[in-house]
Structure formats: structure tokens, C-alpha cells
Design a protein around this nucleic acid. Structure first.
Length: 464
RNA sequence: GGUGCCGUGCCCGAGUGGUUAGGGAGCGGUCUGCAAAACCGCCUACAUCGGUUCAAUUCCGAUCGGCACCUCCA
């Protein structure tokens, strides 16, 4: 099966061919850890997780590296009132390092709840400042930089392919520049590799450097760490669409300036989660964390399921109504799977089984077309010519990329007092005391337990 | 202001030049002691206006609307 992916670099869906047969080097831009991740951020990590799982299914050994940006935005004098968490942390008298570590841990807790596989390797920017400085030095030696007042700038003019990923022309960038221009720059489009003269004079995180005491520019960490762990040639580099025109463009300029050859073969970008007022952002009002959804009574996997329903390159319109729909679908699917587990009919339809398997994986192989894959999954689940055992086998296979935790789906065990009620009602039914039976059922419903009378006995499940 | 993407039924969301994915919600039926689940059926679509075509939701153009990027940002 040919596995194809949409490559931002070529703007086309290309057959994936790794540099080294059977192996994939995969770098995913990680979180900036001075705040909780919001569900928009998490959508991107779910996309990357599906990508990684799909690669593994198709037989590749994936070396998945993710950075933690724990420097760069931790100025002690953040824009007043803008970053509530930073202010809160300040009140708690935590250092930037403590803040960073705290949110890094929170981030991975969220990922775990969403069943996002942990990267093979996680690297922190603060622990790789030396590597970044080395890269800046190399760029300096090759003439890609200039230094003014201790700030080292990347000279865009020296890298003609600068716009190859964003496909913007440089004049447009100039015209569009709406931010204040650093007068030290030769060209407004140049960017900083090392700051010794920050616009944030109270920066707490500082390092010695050949250019002065300061801190690295926003983009150098990814170039330096990705290259350190994955080499000078990388198969896949992924992130959010917002990174195309600045962050990844600058990463390319840095890395390819150093190596003098193509750095990354496939660039992949996940689209945004959007809400009424636009993309989810840190402005108050549309900033939802996973915990908020949990507090609203949702399982993190409901959110994962919601994300799986949309293609990663399409914006997803988030609403609680949409999430509720995902929740209902997920719970219904879960209950089906549990019923397959409880009374597995063998079934004997190997042709159909392999057909469904092929269609599902074919969809994934077509640039991770998860919406189509889910449609195949539902068709399979409702196919009465398949046995439960066959369906379960397919679901377990599909779950390798869905990551919904099919193996964990189980009929809940009831607390003794509720189980006693179930038994009591069964006795009432046997006695044909329908009134008592219905009363008992209502009591259980009030406790969130829905009963299901079947020819082989009474079954139960939680209603959410 | 510049650039790009998008506008699908109550909601989320695929897709295709002609036979209308999938899920959720709703409605009706079968089943059930009654339910629930399941199954069957129904219900709402392709922003607007032109054009190309035997035929357009699908191609082209315009308009309106939304979003994103150009600036830290998933």
C-alpha cells in the first residue's frame, strides 16, 4: 500500500519515501510551556499522533523527537494583564524554570489523557543553548549573520530560497510588516538568532555567549535540536499551519544555511481548531483547556474522537454541541465494542474482513484521511454479515491509529449496592412484578446506570 | 492593506461533472411486559448571481460572508 502525505513544501500529496528504508525521522514542534495547552494546541498533537501511529502501522520505525520551548517567552515583565498564568505564577513566586517544568508536566498529562503516544525523545531548549550557539557560530562563519549591539541577526538576503516553504514573495512581506521595525536590522525581514539587547530588559533566563549575555532567538532551538537528534537530513517535520510562514521558514533558513543542502523532505501542517470568534487564542473567552472539557463531563477521548472526525488539513469548528455529538458517537461505539467482547459470535466472512481492513488503511494511506476511515469503521460496525469476533478483531487493528483504547473498553463493574438492585430487579421480573421492576430500574437510572434486558440476562452500562 | 483557504442539510463533517460519505440530534416503525440497545424507514444540503457543459454542489468568473497567515501563536 502506498502511503502518501501532503507536503507543504511541494503543495501536493506525495508518496512517502523515507531517507533510510524502513525508518522515519520525525520532528514535531512542541509546546511553549508557560501556560496550559488549550484544546486547539492539542488538536495538532492529536494529528501528529495519528501520523506517527500510521507510520508505525505501515511498517516504519519512527524516531519521534519533540522540543519543549522553555525559553523565549518567559520575560519577567510580560505584557501586563495579558498573560494571566504568568501573573498567577508570579504571585506564587515561581521562577521561570519552575513554571516551565510545571506546564511541561501538565502538557504531557493532557497528552496521556488523550492517548497521544509520548515522543521517542523530548528535548528542552534550555538544555541545548550550547548547540544553538554552535549553530549560530556556523552561520556566522558562513556569512549568514551580522551583529549589532550584541544581537545576532540572520541576513535573509543571503538565503535566496527563503520563501520556498511559505511561497510568499519578499516584497509582500515587506508591505505587510505591521510591527515596529528594529532599527538595528539591515532588512526588516531579518530575524534574530541571539539576543543580547532584548526589548525585555528584565529577562530572567540568560546565558553567556560570544556575543554577550542573553538568550537565543525564537527559531534556532528547533533547527539545533532537530539536527542534533535526527541529523542533517530529516524525513518529516510537523507543526501547526501558523508556523509555515515564519517559524518553519526561519528554521529552514538556519539549518540549510548551515548544511548547504535540503534539510527536511516532508513538511506537514495541521489546521486550526476555530470557535465563534476565530482561532482559539489566549485572549479571554475562547481559551478552553482539556480540564474544562473534563469539568463539563466529557472524557478526553470524546475530544480525540471529535478531532478524528475532521481531516487534519481542514479547520474544525468547535462547539459544545459538536463535542456532545462526538461524545454520543464515541460512547455508542464503545458500547458496541463491549457487546462484541461480551458475546463474541465467531463469524466467517474473511473476504469482508480483509475488504474493510483494506478500505480503512487505504484511507489512512491517502494523506491520513481519517473521516473516510471512520465512515468505513461505522459501516463495518453495522455490517450484519460479520461476526462480533471479526468486528472486534478489525476494531483492535483500527485502534492502532485511532488510539481510542479499544482494549480498555469494558462493561463497568457495579458497586455492590447497585449490583444488589440489579439482582433484586431481576427477581422482580422473574416474579412478573413489573411495577417493582420498573421502580428499581428508575432508581438505577438515577444513579447513571442504564439496564438492558437481553435473552441471556440483564446487561448494564453507564449513561453519561 | 497584501496573500491564501473556505462557505454542504438542525449540528459536526467527507466527497464527486451525471448514481447525493459517515456520525450526532429529531421523527416514525419493528423488537420488548414496559424500557434501553439494536435494526428498518423518514427528515432537512450543497452562500448568491452569472458563465462553460447534454448535465454542476463539483469547473470558470463576480459578489457577499467566514477563517488563517503576513506579528508571539498549534
Amino acid at each position: 500500500m502506498q502511503f502518501s502525505l501532503f507536503n507543504t513544501l511541494t503543495r501536493s500529496t506525495d508518496v512517502f519515501v523515507p531517507i533510510e528504508p524502513g525508518k522515519v525521522s520525525f520532528y514535531a514542534c512542541g509546546p511553549t510551556v508557560y501556560h496550559y495547552a488549550h484544546i486547539g494546541n492539542l488538536r495538532t498533537y492529536i494529528f501528529e499522533d495519528v501520523l506517527r501511529r500510521a507510520l508505525e502501522h505501515f511498517g516504519f520505525t519512527v524516531q519521534h523527537v519533540m522540543n519543549i520551548t522553555d525559553v523565549g517567552h518567559l520575560e519577567s515583565d510580560a505584557d501586563a494583564g495579558d498573560d494571566k498564568m504568568a501573573l498567577a505564577s508570579k504571585r506564587e513566586h515561581k521562577s521561570p524554570w519552575e513554571i516551565a517544568r510545571f506546564y511541561e508536566e501538565e502538557f504531557f498529562k493532557d497528552c496521556e489523557k488523550l492517548q497521544i503516544l509520548k515522543p521517542s525523545l523530548v528535548c528542552r531548549a534550555t538544555e541545548h543553548v550550547a548547540e544553538m550557539q554552535e549553530m549560530v557560530k556556523t552561520l556566522e562563519e558562513k556569512g549568514f549573520t551580522y551583529t549589532v549591539d550584541g544581537n545576532v541577526y540572520y541576513r535573509i538576503a543571503k538565503f535566496p530560497e527563503y520563501a520556498k516553504l511559505s511561497r510568499r514573495n519578499l516584497e509582500e512581506l515587506l508591505e505587510g510588516a505591521r510591527v515596529e521595525i528594529d532599527p538595528r536590522k539591515e532588512d526588516p525581514r531579518d530575524f534574530v538568532l541571539w539576543f543580547s539587547q532584548s526589548k525585555f530588559p528584565n529577562q530572567i533566563m540568560k546565558w553567556e555567549s560570544p556575543w554577550g549575555v542573553g538568550f537565543p532567538g525564537w527559531h534556532i532551538e528547533c533547527s539545533a535540536m532537530a539536527s542534533k537528534y535526527l541529523g542533517e537530513r530529516i524525513d518529516i517535520h510537523a507543526g501547526g499551519v501558523d508556523h509555515i510562514s515564519v517559524h518553519h521558514t526561519n528554521e529552514i533558513a538556519q539549518a540549510e544555511g548551515c548544511f548547504e543542502h535540503q534539510w527536511v523532505n516532508y513538511w506537514m501542517h495541521g489546521e486550526f481548531l476555530v470557535v465563534d470568534k476565530g482561532k482559539m487564542a489566549k485572549s479571554a473567552g475562547n481559551f478552553l483547556t482539556l480540564q474544562v472539557l473534563i469539568d463539563e463531563g466529557y472524557d478526553p477521548l470524546h475530544y480525540r474522537y471529535l478531532c478524528l472526525g475532521a481531516h487534519y488539513r481542514s479547520q474544525l469548528f468547535f462547539s459544545l454541541e459538536a463535542l456532545a455529538g462526538a461524545k454520543n458517537a464515541f460512547e455508542a461505539l464503545k458500547n458496541r465494542v463491549i457487546s462484541w467482547k461480551l458475546s463474541p459470535q465467531k463469524g466467517n466472512n474473511p473476504e469482508k474482513v480483509s475488504l474493510y481492513g483494506n478500505r480503512f488503511w487505504q484511507a489512512l494511506a491517502n494523506d491520513l484521511d481519517m473521516p473516510i476511515a471512520l465512515a468505513v469503521l461505522w459501516e463495518m460496525a453495522k455490517d450484519q454479515t460479520l461476526g462480533d469476533e471479526e468486528k472486534l478483531r478489525l476494531m483492535r487493528d483500527f485502534d492502532k491509529v485511532l488510539g481510542l483504547g479499544v482494549d480498555n473498553f469494558a462493561r463497568p463493574t457495579l458497586p455492590q449496592n447497585l449490583y444488589d438492585l440489579v439482582l433484586k430487579r431481576e427477581q422482580a421480573r422473574a416474579d412478573k412484578d413489573w411495577q417493582l421492576a420498573d421502580t428499581l430500574r428508575q432508581e438505577l437510572v438515577a444513579q447513571g446506570i442504564q439496564l438492558k434486558d437481553t435473552p441471556s440476562g440483564t446487561d448494564w452500562y453507564y449513561v453519561y
